[in-house]
Design a protein around this nucleic acid. Sequence first.
DNA 1: ATTTTTTTGGAAACCGATTTCAAAAAATCT
DNA 2: AGATTTTTTGAAATCGGTTTCCAAAAAAAT
Lengths: 344, 344
Amino acid sequence: MSKSKRVTIYDIADELGMSASYVSRALNNHPLVRQEIRNRVKKKALQLNYKYNSHAANLRQGSSKTIGVVVPHIDQSFFSGVIAGIEEICFQHNYGLVICQSHESFKQECLAVETLIHQNVACILISVSAETQSYAHLESIKQHNIDLIQFDRCIDKLDSYKVLNDNKETSFNVVNALVEEGYKRIAFLGGPEHLNAFKDRKEGYLKAIKHAGLSIPYNFIVDNVLSKDKAAQIATELLSLKDPPDAFLTVSDHQSLGVLEIANSLGIQVPQQLGIFGFANEAFAEIIQPSLSSVDQKSKEIGERTANLYFKNILNRKDNTPASSRKEIIKCEIIIRKSSRKVK
Amino acid sequence: MSKSKRVTIYDIADELGMSASYVSRALNNHPLVRQEIRNRVKKKALQLNYKYNSHAANLRQGSSKTIGVVVPHIDQSFFSGVIAGIEEICFQHNYGLVICQSHESFKQECLAVETLIHQNVACILISVSAETQSYAHLESIKQHNIDLIQFDRCIDKLDSYKVLNDNKETSFNVVNALVEEGYKRIAFLGGPEHLNAFKDRKEGYLKAIKHAGLSIPYNFIVDNVLSKDKAAQIATELLSLKDPPDAFLTVSDHQSLGVLEIANSLGIQVPQQLGIFGFANEAFAEIIQPSLSSVDQKSKEIGERTANLYFKNILNRKDNTPASSRKEIIKCEIIIRKSSRKVK
DNA sequence: ATTTTTTTGGAAACCGATTTCAAAAAATCT
DNA sequence: AGATTTTTTGAAATCGGTTTCCAAAAAAAT
């Protein structure tokens, strides 16, 4: 009795002297089966330690109650926050969750998508890798009758629901806040421009600069310096100019940290002489001295909204939403801390 | 031609005028099929946009190339690190990964385990919830021929592979390091004692105290104060004693942060008057001022080792390792920063 | 008492890949 | 050439729920 075979509905059927089809219906609360029988069957199932076999059901039904997620890295706080949100919603709907990392590699992203197609997931939620420029692999998802939702990092040209932060507006508002504090020479440290989130943050910045009528030297605007070290290097250069910036807006908190460290080492007072504003509201932002102003991207909410989009707008509904309105914008929260608060 | 049916091996077989069974073998590089035919079949598969159906294969084979993971929270840095490690190894072996959160709830943990059994995963990797005391649900996993590996938070009595940090030794060594720095009145802020990780850290602390021959007032040792706020509260009490502690060892960096903030507000110099040592090496540990000494738990390595245990020791092997040696210990790395370095 | 409707239940096909078993084809050996 | 071995190839069963279609039984209506 060691290699016990799996208990199936046939075993239950035998024990109760009925047919497997009836057992199936009973277990699924089918209206054609009386409550009394449902109870009897369920009791027996429990007694025999029966476990439903998803694969069998999925094979027959052609779809699985599973959602696939592809992110660049699970262990980045933004993405793990999103995933936590997705998981919660899926759990509520009794859906499973399969998670893949692309490691920012286009090739691995394609592989992940393949795997999810094989698994016959109902829907794929994806935030594309930094390398991803083409999207045949995403088109292929739809060809296989699998729904697709993009979040955070989206391919614009691809027709799908998209869940995004209001990066441009937020960036615009942040600059306005800096201007109100009295900062005038605001530098910008950006990320790779082909990712919409970073592009939008830059656009918002530029718009606000224009709106405020400030004149910013061209070399105050630097793209593609996403790491702390690169940011520190640029900060060193800019802060040793004759007319240095009096504030930095960066697209990540790590960049801001780099700037802050350089300011400290150069004896520049933050926020009095230099304002610093980050993005992402990492755990350390409120902890460091001076505390770092930043932008909360509401990662968990992004996850929840993304997953809900599937359950509310796509599932059980012919989705004829016009392409134009297939965007959900999650408002960021601007958190002003000490690093950008010059006036009391 | 809208609701196109899924392309199967039968379609490929038809097109090539051979049987489905042969196609299956060709796609799987079965030795009985010539390379030439394999190529031809694969080419046609690509051409028809054929996608393998995992469910069909899983149903037939009775096992899926999928691993299930259950953790309390995905978005805690330790666990997201572990998961990143697991994912990497699974990806290498072309295994899928299904991730569930227990949210520290016993009930949700049971549900998650159920789901994974339904999915017929090959193996479940689990770090139990804080609520989990009984383990019938974990026994049930084994009854269903699914392998089980515990990591970090383990039920000792349950027979399974276990992957753990050397919490006790590390804690012992940390206290020794504090003693060497000249700290003598070392307080301990612990976590819930029914979780082995926290229990072990306390034991290591006690052992080191004994070993160093220090006498510590009983009220310097406080259990179950895992949050920053609780730790801050206790620190306030202890630091206002006539003979306060001159160092704190805590079981998390958040606790240490609480202690640090209180020390700052009381005007107590860290590390000169008070040494602080955390656990987990959160991102903020090296960033705050003074930088926080902490313990790197090597979360990613835990994930890798846990997953590898399945692929190397369990899969394709009658696992007759004696229960005693079914433990993998991952050595922590002690990172001494400013908060505990009194002497230069 | 007969017909119609409703309820209750089961037989069998189905989903798609795998695998066993055996037959057909090719190659090798008398 | 015929017999034997080896290599290719395929038919059919299988995994376990789901679902369609149909039949029998019970209840209601005529």
